[in-house]
Design a binder for these strands. Structure first.
Lengths: 325, 325
DNA sequence: TTGAAAGCGTTACCAA
DNA sequence: TTGGTAACGCTTTCAA
């Protein structure tokens, strides 16, 4: 790697001058600029970001902590973040926290050590982690008040899911509740519960985890306990898939006798047969918005607690009945 | 952030001494060490990795380029890489290349600018990219001879898939070929083709992309052209899912009248109904092995072209018939 | 319009 | 066993 010193020598100028043309600062004569540019090109010089970073006390690096890249909802989010950042010349350091506080702290520490200039986190449960940080933080998906946040309208989604089922004629509805410590899950649940409560449909609640393993078991119990159920509001798409599988196994006709609505709209949905009707969260867009907000806050060195709520929508596929308009 | 200078002042010693206790180098009196440790703790000091990196001309950062984090095979890989690296105290900078040379080059450049000490790439198509680099590179999944590589036994997998179908009684087999420029796809295909060629089963070949979009169309054509087919060797699980969907739509009995074998064993497989039988690639382990090999090469500053081939296995689920032993 | 030099936080050499 | 200091590659102030 060529250094600025070599470029300076090649161009017959001082390093200060090279630095100026590099950054477009200060005065530099047109001819000098040309000579420097030529030297840069000739030596295929690229500034050492580390040295820059040391001097400026900031880098071009952004930290991203997600619970688990292996959960299909998050890659979509991450991709949105990455694409936006990449475009703006920033780079991503990524860490999987497994919803584990220790791990997240560990990542945050090394982010700081690397002069990361901002971070995006998807675990708003514990705000104390970032309060000490002097870099902008944006919360994504799992958010908290008073912090810059980007999330999808969970309550709206929960409501929508319940309404969809009601409007399409289910009247013995099972509402699946995700992990209670996951805020998004809780919000969806509460909103759906509210809608159901105001309806005259029969309904019941069943607790689920968010992973397929547990969900499979839960699905069995669900149909054992409530064989009459004709509509299911799932806590997320993974759980919905498990329920769908179990229902198919038991020979249920879907959507004729049983309707299912998922949540998230992960890519899997389209792969299933029948394809899963679900509440779509604009994950990619959420990621991009979060990145955008973060960059704004970095540039204005503010940490404005803007709340960006993105709308969800119903993705009608094959596990719900058509309704004539 | 406290600096080494502040720690030195707090402990009443020079920065050189602090550096020594930090790195466990040279002599330092037990009492001095204690004083320094106390100061470190008191100030909650953490070394600035950027400054270290500048001096050492190397960082703790590893670059990872994957085609698309959104394709469910890669997060698994990435997770394997990340977990191993994390454990060893390294950090990951990640980039999505979209199989685009430009983008990959761009990432490599910025990796270098950040003093990345090694990188893992999942696009072995073009070796010229890394030849100029003086940092160790490990190829993962999409590999090339003469480069340190970690991959799963594609040919073995292709062979296995074909044999499975044959052994389970399919005798009108459709072999799906993935994109020809993707080496892994080609190897699977060729091996399966060879097995089929040596059998006395009827078979035909159909080209597919790796994405769901195209696959859906292809699936339709497949059944239009070869309605008699009773066994399908898919190019990957996404394609297999599309085929499964289409088959179900057309009312085929699976696995009684039609068997399907996928490739990869992405998490989706278990979510389908019937669950997809497939050739399992140990993606997580592949990622971990690649990370391990990379770290070895970094530590011995070699770039030994070790080839690590991981075995694949048949994951028997519900789209193939049981065979009595 | 240009260059010299200080400084960013660290490490490692050399002297003490 | 310890401290002073140059150096890593860059940016920015100050002076020329």
């Amino acid at each position: 790697m060529a250094t600025i010193k070599e470029v300076a020598k090649e161009a017959g100028v001082s390093v200060a001058t090279v630095s100026r043309v590099l950054n477009g600062n200060g005065y530099v004569h047109e001819d000098t600029r040309k000579a420097v540019d030529a030297a840069i090109k000739k030596l295929d010089y690229r500034p050492n970001e580390i040295a820059r970073s040391l001097f400026n006390r900031k880098s071009k690096l952004i930290g991203l902590v997600i619970p688990d890249i292996t959960n299909p909802f998050f890659p979509e989010l991450a991709r949105g973040v990455e694409d936006f950042l990449q475009e703006q010349g920033y780079r991503l350091i990524i860490g999987n926290s497994d919803e584990n506080r220790e791990k997240e702290i560990n990542y945050i520490e090394t982010f700081i050590q690397h002069n990361v200039i901002g971070m995006i986190s998807t675990s708003g449960e514990d705000t104390s982690l970032w309060e000490a940080l002097k870099i902008p933080v944006v919360l994504l998906d799992r958010v908290t008040e008073n912090y810059p946040s980007v999330y999808a309208d969970q309550a709206g989604g929960g409501r929508l899911a319940a309404e969809i089922l009601l409007a399409r004629g289910s009247n013995n509805i099972t509402l699946l509740r995700g992990p209670q410590h996951v805020r998004t899950a809780q919000e969806r649940f509460l909103a759906a519960l509210d809608v159901l409560g105001r309806s005259n449909a029969v309904f019941q609640v069943v607790n689920t985890s968010f992973s397929f393993k547990g969900a499979n078991e839960t699905a069995k119990q669900l149909f054992d306990m409530y064989p009459e159920t004709d509509g299911i509001v799932a806590s997320n798409d993974i759980v919905a898939s498990a329920v769908l599988r179990e229902a198919l196994k038991r020979g249920k006709n879907i959507p004729e006798n049983l309707q299912i609505v998922g949540f998230d709209d992960i890519p899997v949905c389209e792969l299933l047969y029948p394809a899963l009707s679900t509440i779509h969260q604009p994950a990619y867009q959420m990621g991009a918005e979060a990145a955008k907000l973060l960059i704004e806050n970095i540039l204005h060195s503010s940490n404005e607690a803007k709340q960006i709520v993105l709308p969800v929508s119903f993705k009608e596929r094959e596990t719900t009945r058509k309704v004539e308009m």
